[in-house]
Amino acid sequence: MYAQMIQSTGKGVKSLDEMDPQERAFQERINAGGKIEPKDWMPDGYRKNLIRQIGQHAHSEIVGQLPEGNWITRAPTLERKAILLAKVQDEAGHGLYLYCAAETLGITRDEMTEALHEGRMKYSSIFNYPTLTWADMGAVGWLVDGAAIMNQVPLQRTSYGPYARAMVRICKEESFHQRQGFDIMMKMCKGTPAQKKMAQDALNRMWFPSLMMFGPSDKDSVHSEQSMAWKIKMNTNDELRQKFVDQTVPQAEYLGLTVPDDTLAWNEEKGGYDFAEPDWNEFFDVLKGNGPCNQERLQTRKDAWDDGAWVRDGMLAHAAKKRALKVAAE
């Protein structure tokens, strides 16, 4: 998802009887649907896992602005431009809500930024794919934000209070993102044959990378099992992927587009579609940094950070000067 391949301690889930009283009380509170707040006691692994997960989620929102920002100056109409601008601004907001949530766990914003720039923290694999045509703005909103919603809606019930609250805000805003994407797709599909072809091409390129967003199957993963016990992960990757495919295929049919998967077929028995897995070698390769846009994305972030340093420092200096003047006046 926006947070992929989050590794826990890997030791497997302890039973309540194996826990010391403090940890047991913590787990029982989570089991009963209680929330954990910043100053509460929490196991070391819970804190570390959450920092990784929320941090990666925040980085994804921020880096996720780049593929769409690419099209703001080239949007086909003023209205589309205003909508896209608002959408990209929302993504910045989502990043900020999440950074704040992560900061309550004892990591600073700068520390997370540095970790991203040095490659110690990741962002979602999906943003390492290029956005080549205007139809990609449609496909990104429809598929990428659609996949994000699948994951984020259940996370509103996650055990960590600040994370859950950030998710509530994000989910409220996210459905605008998906709808604006689908609206672009509808317009393209009802347009000229060349425009419809462009929409089909965008779907062809974005389909499998969107399925990869959920991460490889984790039904046997100890990391996943621990995260689910802590309720910082609410569903398995396969569950969410299935749900996404079941929801999206009829929408593609409505658009008159073909999902680029010959094996796609309705399975009456399971009440869902059978579909082809994405190429997981490609996924791991992109995570390692070898996707089509990894270098460009990271370099853009680093440049923005370095080029903005004088502004950040200048504003602090100005604030200090104003404070000094105020003291002198009193």
């Binding site: 929490m42 196991p43 070391d44 600073t108 700068d110 720039h117 370095d306 340093a309």
Partner: peptide
């Protein structure tokens, strides 16, 4: 397992080569 105090982070620590913030 315990819940450690968050490690204090040196806000002015700059990455190697970068100007001190």
């Amino acid at each position: 397992m315990s819940s450690p105090a968050p490690t204090p982070y040196d806000k002015t620590k700059a990455p190697t080569g970068a100007p001190k913030r």
